[in-house]
Write a protein that binds this DNA or RNA. Structure first.
Length: 266
DNA sequence: AATGGGACCTGCGCGC
DNA sequence: TGCGCGCAGGTCCCAT
């Protein structure tokens, strides 16, 4: 579930509490989440390193280390980074020079940790499309014009635009009053402009509220984000539209649940 | 190129 | 009460 706003929130939270701290010990409770190098190498190369700063690219967190290497963290659906950790649910615990730990929790073990020399060369980083906040209106119109595919799955395509997931795609389309099954190249210039504006606005608001605590997402402190109370369509199937009271529909697109208002969204 | 499905996982809520 | 099933979704991979 963590999408751009949740990962950005974690990035900001993390930077405040762990930048400048040294890793003194690494406990691996489930090696499956370590994708590279081997668990043994992973530990050896992390111990003694200082976390210099924390970056975000799309839904990926990057912890830059004093060795010049970087730890890339993808939370996928249920990953959490919690500090100080209590290790009860931890898959990997990073002990720091103040005696506290940063815990990587991940109920479903989909998350991925990678310790690499150059994170920008990672295959899944190279394949990412632009960050939503970097896209200009002219660029966005051109991006849409070239695509015949349905707009909702397209917003989830990380090589098209990076950082949006199922929840925010639904919210952005609702606020833009665009049906999820509309072909991308059928959007008028006005609709494209509105969609880009709403994408930026929704993501910005969600970051402001510390993300949406649906399922497992929590902030680094373990506390929830508070944006879920402002959701307008996501997971509201069967309930009245907050604008026109029409019953919110839910369909499946590309294997994903997709909620929309059949009256408001054209 | 676009689309659909399965795989990876676990916990939850539902129906019987 | 308890069991089994489907669903939740980020991303990759394969097939059509």
């Amino acid at each position: 579930m963590p999408e751009l706003p949740e990962v950005e929130t974690i990035k900001r939270d993390l930077e405040k509490v762990i930048a400048g701290k040294k890793i003194t010990k690494v406990c691996v409770h489930n090696a499956a989440v370590i994708k590279e190098p081997s668990a043994a190498e992973f530990k050896k190369k992390l111990v003694g390193r200082t976390i210099k700063r924390v970056l975000r690219r799309a839904k990926v967190l990057i912890l830059e280390l004093s060795s010049g290497k970087a730890l890339a963290v993808h939370l996928k659906m249920t990953g959490q980074l919690v500090y100080p950790g209590n290790s009860s649910k931890s898959r990997v615990s990073f002990y720091l020079d103040n005696g506290k730990s940063l815990d990587f929790n991940d109920q479903r073990i989909f998350g991925e940790l990678r310790l690499v020399d150059d994170w920008k060369k990672l295959k899944f980083i190279r394949a990412l499309g632009p960050e939503p906040f970097d896209i200009t209106l002219e660029q966005f119109k051109e991006m849409l014009r070239l695509k015949k595919t349905k707009i909702k799955p397209l917003l989830l395509d990380q090589s098209f635009i990076s950082g949006i997931g199922n929840l925010y795609a639904a919210e952005c389309l609702f606020r833009s009053r665009i049906r999820p099954e509309r072909p991308a190249n059928s959007l008028s210039e006005k609709e494209a402009g509105l969609l880009l504006k709403e994408i930026k606005a929704v993501l910005k608001e969600a970051i402001h509220y510390g993300g949406s605590s649906i399922d497992d997402y929590v902030r680094v402190s373990g506390k929830p984000g508070s944006y879920a109370q402002y959701h307008k369509v996501y997971a509201r199937q069967g309930k009245p539209c907050l604008v026109c009271k029409t019953r919110i529909h839910k369909i499946t697109m590309g294997g994903r649940g997709t909620c929309f208002c059949p009256k408001c969204q054209k």
